[in-house]
Design a binder for these strands. Structure first.
Length: 799
RNA sequence: GCCGAGGUGGUGAAAUGGCAGACACACUGGCUUUAGGAGCCAGCGCCGCAAGGCAUGCGGGUUCAAAUCCCGCCCUCGGCACCA
């Protein structure tokens, strides 16, 4: 085994000091779209979703970061100017929780972890441009979160509203949605209820239509697009007004089935429907109704899950509406199976045509009426309905009553109301609090910092208070890809030239678990900034590929809490970074999930040391190279080399790294059979392996260059030109003909590719196998597939 | 329930209508070595001494030919889940 420790350390140091992977800041041509890269530009922006600084790099991080680096190195060798930056998604609840547990400040905890992870990421040998590093918890980054908030606010796209939040009754704090697991608190398993609190929201629903339609113009996995489509959930329907009996008012419902309106036998309102308050006076059973409404609010997620689909509800006695066609008076109910913030929060119930309504009608013994259907448009005309589109997508609730996040740049003034912080006063820095525990009253810990809290109103100069909520960390990650090329820019969130030359991201890599939230929010931000005229594109990621997850030995997702997380450090110190990288690639396709089992690593370890040992077969006598290829073995090897050049390139393009490596293994197997190998061969082999095993190949490449007496200036293998294959050499002059009898393989012949169809069929018919099975008879039919096979069909007697 | 992905040797996996199991791991036998998680040679889907037969979750179908295409099931994973 070669001295990988020495080699890997040495080259990592050289790359770092030479800033080998830092891209030039000068303006290049626009980046090409992924599918039409060739010849359309030279800038290539590859980005892998930035990590949360949890503290250590586990094998899942390797699976995230190592495969895209192959792609990046390959593109670079092809002559692309490749930007591959890295950063840390550094705000968020885990830091707070860990900090509370270990009594360190979240900032200290986070910055320490970033330091460790930086070192670990560096030891992975990825070709990151570290000069473009971003860390979201620093004011120089989150300042721009605040700027974007103000821009959204000015356009009415950031607004404040009383909204239900997840409230853990045991921790007495608000939880993020992702912290609620099966209706329980992730940390303490306490009960989670909905609590109404004033919160900030981004009006992403304004963009629903564009977010949906523009999915057609990006190269993303179909399943991811489908998930976004379902999440946005557009449906085409009609608004129909039902007149309240005896009153000069109506209640509007949304339906996708106006053709069934004649069979609507009752109406159901969501418990929070505002009309209930308005018509209080007319409701005869107000007390039980109020009780039902209160109960709904108190209902926990857990209760709902336990109840299953069992429907509950109560009639609003004394209140009827008129069916707009039959003019019959029908009862009005409230039930929590009608969702308050979808459609109009009211439905016409048609138990004859809707399963859920049928279930409800059956339970409460309501009239089920099956009138003949109307024509769709006919019905709309008759009831004077309004065609509408509705979306399941909700506005994005960004308020967090937590400490470790970006402060929302708003001031509450008694006189002036909600006042935005003037841009020139940004950033509003997050104060260093000693006590950052979440509070009982649901207010952010920032409310306890009087210095932070009490300010003068920027408008009237009177006494005012700062907003104490912080932003959801998804805000940070919704635009970070814009910041990377301008990482150090101070005058704004991003520089015009850098943005125009690098963005949109050419290739985005990351986990499928972000298929909805992060990717949707990023698209929303991009569209908003496009509308503001700040950028000239309205989709952030031209191409997207998900890596498969690595599962723990138990087959479950790796997670710290499960204790099935594997730390690759041991493998790295035992076999080297190159070996671990290669093993990750060789395990299976990039997009596929696999169970982590390090047992097979010896295969790639052996491969690497044999590649290293192959150097001993180099033909030192240089004159040999000039000789014609007389030796058949060497000629075959050259042919195989050129086929491998094509195969490896094609496979990397498709991220099929496992088969690319197996092709290199086959090539090595053949090379080892030779007495000597040429400089040219070895050099090409090393180049082909370079994106996969960057350290060993750099070492070998430099050794070859010295042996070959090339210039002593460092020319890294990672900037060497990717080998080109000779199309003449990948064409064989013979092929293997498979002979089938009745579809079963019976023989193989090696034939010249120059033979005609007749000659090939004749050869096949006179083969041993054909003679045996034909037994002197004539074949019924012969199928010929050029350069592949001949299938001789013989009629069986019974056919 | 709905949507999506998947199911191939002891293991990771190849093969996208045309030789099923490439490339590896593990295992078995042999050679070599003071020694080995070393190297080399051979074997390795199942049944069978062999000839041969049987095999890609299960059952049908299309085809000269199916892991691959079509129909119907079963199982695993991921997402959504009363959205009218």
């Amino acid at each position: 085994m070669y001295n990988f420790k020495f080699i890997e350390k040495k080259w990592q140091k050289v790359w770092k000091t030479k800033k080998l992977y830092n891209v030039s800041d000068k303006v290049e041509e626009k980046p090409p779209s992924h599918e039409a890269m060739a010849g359309r530009g030279k800038n290539y922006y590859q980005l892998t979703m930035f990590p949360y600084p949890s503290g250590d790099l586990h094998v899942g991080h390797w699976k995230n970061f190592a495969p895209p680096d192959v792609f990046v190195r390959y593109k670079r060798m092809q002559g692309y100017n490749v930007l591959s930056p890295i950063g840390f998604d550094a705000f968020g609840l885990p830091a707070e929780n860990a900090a509370l547990k270990n009594s360190v400040h979240p900032e200290k905890w986070t910055m320490q972890n970033i330091k460790t992870m930086t070192r670990q990421l560096e030891s992975m040998g990825n070709s990151f441009d570290w000069s473009k590093l971003i860390i979201t918890c620093l004011p120089e980054y989150y300042k721009w979160n605040q700027l974007f908030f103000l821009k959204l606010f000015n356009k009415g796209l950031a607004y404040r509203k009383k909204a239900p939040a997840n409230w853990c009754t045991s921790c007495k704090t608000v939880l993020a949605n992702e912290q609620v697991i099966d209706g329980k608190c992730e940390r303490c398993e306490g009960t989670v209820i909905q609590r109404e609190i004033d919160q900030w929201l981004f009006k992403i629903t304004d963009y629903a239509e564009r977010l949906l339609n523009d999915l057609d113009k990006i190269d993303w996995p179909e399943r991811t697009k489908t998930m976004q489509r379902n999440w946005i959930g557009r449906s085409e329907g009609v608004l129909i007004k039902f007149v309240v009996e005896g009153l000069d008012m109506g209640i509007e419902v949304f339906t996708t089935r106006p053709d069934t309106v004649r069979s609507a036998t009752y109406m159901v309102l969501a418990p929070e429907h505002e009309v209930i308050k308005k018509l209080k006076a007319r409701i005869k059973n107000l007390q039980p109704v109020q009780k039902y409404i209160d109960n709904t609010k108190l209902k926990t997620e857990k209760d709902r899950i336990e109840e299953g689909r069992e429907k509950t509800g109560i009639q609003l006695l004394g209140l009827n509406v008129l069916n707009p066609i039959t003019k019959k008076a029908i009862p009005v109910w409230i039930s929590d199976y009608v969702v308050g913030n979808y459609g109009t929060g009211a439905i016409m119930a048609v138990p004859a045509h809707d399963e859920r309504d049928a279930e409800f009608a059956k339970k409460f013994e309501l009239l089920i009426d099956n009138e003949p259907l109307l024509g769709f448009d006919e019905a709309i005309d008759l009831v004077n309905g309004k065609k509408t589109r509705k979306y399941k997508l909700r506005d994005w609730l960004i308020s967090r009553q937590r400490y470790w996040g970006t402060p929302i740049p708003i001031i509450h003034c008694e006189k002036c109301g909600i006042v935005p912080v003037p841009e020139k006063n940004l950033p509003i820095k997050l104060p260093i609090l000693k006590d950052f525990k979440p509070a009982d009253d649901g207010r952010s810990p920032l409310a306890r910092d009087k210095k932070f809290l009490f300010v003068k109103c920027p408008k009237c100069n009177g006494a005012a208070e700062r907003e104490t909520d912080t932003m959801d960390t998804f805000v940070d990650s919704s635009w970070y890809f814009l910041r990377h090329p301008s990482a150090k820019y101070k005058a704004g969130p991003f520089e015009k030239e850098a943005t125009e030359s690098w963005l949109p991201v050419t290739m985005y890599n990351g986990g499928a678990e972000h298929s909805v939230l992060h990717l949707l929010y990023s698209r929303f931000f991009t569209k908003f900034l496009f509308d503001e005229g700040l950028i000239n594109f309205d989709e952030p990621f031209m191409a997207l590929r998900h890596q498969g997850t690595i599962l723990g030995h138990d087959g479950g997702k790796m997670s710290k809490s499960k204790g099935n997380v594997t730390d690759p450090d041991k493998l790295v110190s035992e076999f080297g970074t190159d070996a671990v990288r290669l093993f990750i690639y060789f395990m299976g396709e990039y997009s596929q999930s696999t169970v982590w089992d390090p047992n097979g690593i010896l295969g790639v370890v052996r491969f690497l040391s044999r590649v290293h040992a192959l150097k001993n077969k180099l033909a030192i006598d240089k004159t040999k190279e000039a000789e014609p290829l007389e030796d058949k073995g060497e000629e075959n090897l050259t042919r195989l080399l050129h086929k491998t050049i094509r195969k490896v390139g094609d496979d990397i393009e498709e991220m099929k790294l496992n088969t690319a490596i197996s092709a290199l293994m086959m090539l090595l197997n053949e090379a080892e059979k030779q007495k000597e190998i040429s400089f040219e061969f070895y050099k090409t082999f090393v180049k082909l392996l370079a994106p996969f095993a960057p350290h060993l190949t750099e070492e070998l490449y430099q050794e070859i260059r010295i042996l070959n007496q090339e210039s002593s200036k460092l020319v890294s293998v990672h900037f060497a030109a990717w080998p080109k294959y000779n199309p003449k050499l990948i064409k064989d002059d013979t092929f293997e003909l498979v002979i089938q009898i009745n579809g079963k393989m019976r023989d193989i012949l090696t034939l010249s590719i120059d033979l005609s169809r007749d000659e090939i069929e004749n050869k096949a018919l006179s083969s041993e196998a054909a003679k045996k099975y034909l037994n002197g008879e004539k074949p019924n039919r012969i199928i010929y597939i050029p350069l592949k096979l001949v299938n001789i069909v013989i009629n069986s007697p019974e056919a």
